[in-house]
Nucleic acid binder design. Structure first.
Length: 542
RNA sequence: GCCCCCGUAGCUCAGUGGAUCAGAGCGAGGGACUUCUAAUCCCUAGGUCGCAGGUUCGAAUCCUGCCGGGGGCGCCA
């Protein structure tokens, strides 16, 4: 799909090429300047060309302006050369109206990417140990991972959401021992799980008291996974795959991958253990695969797991890890490359911590201690929409402080409601206009509207025109949080439009009602889509 | 000691592969409800973009050093 801004960008490039007289040109930047006096868009094209042409940038800008004028016709109101050689473009109302029509024509696909250009991706996230309820920290992973997937999908990719289940190993043994102890009315072992939920788990396992730890653990894991799955579902996160660590061992995948690593000589024995020479791949020390006691390390499983994902033929394997795994990145990448993986095929994203703030006080959460806030608790406290929104608001690589006092408020102070309110308000206006008028507006040639646009209208249209780039930015930079900012801006611009331009009964003030209804519908769709990508509801009334 | 993240308005943070960016929300102060939802809108912040250098015509945005905060550095997971 080609959106109006992309077309404008192409026109600028074409004009630049024409001025250059052949050859290639570094793609000029076309951006929305901060101040209205700098035009609707501005480009640095002339400054890029000037050195090659040996002419002053401002002179080159004049030539480009002339070329653009010829290409854009009545779309361009004027083009002014400014500063060191910027070309500021002032677009006509006709262009805005046609652009709006273009947005509506694109329908549901507006802002999305070409499916043909998409890739197959696997995104692994949450992957919390199935030994207890999901914490708020894991909730941030869930919100981030899921929204990222939604955005990647909308951007044209095919995405699988995956949860890696650590269903074997030390933690599982401790979990099993804790269940057994609780089933027998005893306190859990010191290194076990102290939380009260273990009592409930034990009660749900018939005959737990008589079981050995392994059996209790297996059944406990099953129960916890069901709980986790249910929690994620409530949180609007739906995994495509739950991958089991245990199965990787049982299928022989782990030993097989160790064998494969031996061949190129990446593995060597030392002091009774088996090591992987990760230093050949930029790690700062080699890592153990098999302990001197014969036990496989978690690292060994993880190599097999990532190799398994690689073997499934994805173009891109993305894993979202907690900050405490940051020390793991170098070795995992090393193993990946040792097995022949392309460096750019694996992406490891590190997620920073979450602090809950209440009354100005911070509290960090840990699962071991027994005292923690679960994702379920948080959702119940502040609601699913606010939970998703607040956990998504910050970049994944920065620590997030979640202000419970603010999130709890169901009023204007709470930013999550702002965008929802704008959506509800538009829906209300459209209800008032009536379905018939909406249909007429959508069928009408709003691109040919003669309305002289209020600056609030122009601003709103231009904001909506930013959407495709917002999406590709959010996707490429793995940055869902950008959409929270964007949708807030859309809502603000709509509020201004709503204040300045009467929609129903626009004719009373000399406006084009169909154009304005179209404006509302286009805005509503962009807000609804943005909220959907964030996993936040877009209510028709509030 | 080494590695990663962060240090932007009172608070929480956007912006960060250079030029036409110092921004949003909250807080605080002052206004606007016979409106298409006031869960809204309008006005008010003058912050050396941690500090010091460097590269450049130009840096919050790139490089180096330092200071401060957080996290990670196991034959644990």
């Amino acid at each position: 799909m080609s959106d109006p801004v992309s077309e404008l960008r192409s026109a600028v490039l074409a004009a630049a090429l024409a001025v250059r007289g052949g050859g290639s040109v570094e793609p000029p930047i076309l951006e929305r300047p901060p101040k209205p006096e700098f035009g609707d868009y501005s480009t640095n094209a002339a400054m890029l060309l000037a050195p090659g042409l040996g002419e002053p940038p401002r002179q080159v800008a004049d030539q480009i302006a002339a070329e653009l004028g010829a290409r854009l016709g009545d779309s361009l109101r004027s083009a002014q050369v400014a500063g060191p050689g910027f070309l500021n473009l002032f677009m006509s109302d006709a262009w805005c109206a046609r652009s709006l029509a273009g947005i509506l024509e694109a329908g549901e696909a507006y802002g999305g990417g070409e499916r043909s250009a998409g890739r197959r991706m696997n995104v692994e996230f949450v992957s919390a140990n199935p030994t207890g309820p999901i914490t708020v920290a894991a909730g941030r992973h869930a919100a981030y991972g899921d929204s990222l997937c939604r955005i990647l999908e909308f951007a044209g990719n095919e995405v699988d959401r995956e949860y890696y289940v650590n269903d074997r190993g030390t933690q599982i043994e401790r979990f099993g021992a804790s269940i057994r102890a609780r089933a027998n009315g005893e306190p859990p072992p010191e290194d076990g799980y102290q939380g009260d939920y273990v009592v409930e788990v034990a009660e749900r396992i018939a005959g737990a008291a008589g079981m050995d730890s392994d059996e209790a653990a297996a059944l406990g894991v099953k129960i916890m996974l069901e709980e986790i799955r249910a929690t994620l579902e409530r949180f609007r996160v739906c995994m495509d795959v739950f991958a089991s660590e245990r199965s990787l061992h049982e299928s022989g995948a782990v030993t097989a991958v160790l064998e494969r690593l031996k061949h190129p000589g990446h593995v060597y024995p030392l002091e009774g253990a088996l090591w992987l020479r990760t230093t050949s791949f930029k790690d700062d020390k080699d890592r153990v695969l098999v302990r001197s006691g014969g036990e496989l390390t978690y690292f060994a499983s993880d190599i097999a797991y990532h190799e398994d994902k690689r073997s499934r033929g994805y173009d891109r394997v993305i894993a979202i890890w907690g900050a405490d795994h940051h020390g793991y990145v170098a070795r995992m990448r090393a193993a990946w490359e040792a097995l022949g993986g392309e460096p750019e095929g694996l992406e490891l994203l590190i997620m920073q911590l979450v602090n809950l703030l209440e009354g100005g006080q911070r509290s960090q959460m840990s699962k071991r201690g027994g005292e923690f806030v679960s994702l379920d608790d948080l959702m119940e406290d502040i609601g699913v929409d606010a939970t998703r929104w607040f956990l998504l608001q910050r970049s994944h690589d920065t620590t997030l402080d979640l202000d419970l006092d603010l999130a709890r408020r169901q009023n204007q102070d709470n930013p999550v409601y702002y965008a929802q309110y704008a959506h509800a308000r538009i829906a209300s206006v459209l209800r008032r206009a009536g379905e018939q008028r909406l249909g007429e507006a959508l069928a009408a040639d709003v691109g040919g509207s003669a309305e002289e646009l209020h600056h609030s209208s122009r601003r709103l249209v231009q904001r909506l025109l930013e959407f495709p780039e917002e999406i590709s930015d959010a996707a490429n930079r793995r940055a869902p949080h950008r959409l929270t900012t964007y949708v807030t801006e859309v809502a603000q611009d709509f509020s201004a439009f709503y204040r300045d331009c009467k929609v129903v009964g626009a004719a009373e003030e000399g406006g084009d009602e169909e154009l304005r209804i179209a404006m509302c519908e286009a805005t509503r769709r962009v807000i609804a889509r943005s909220l959907d990508l964030l996993g936040v509801a877009a209510p028709a009334e509030m």
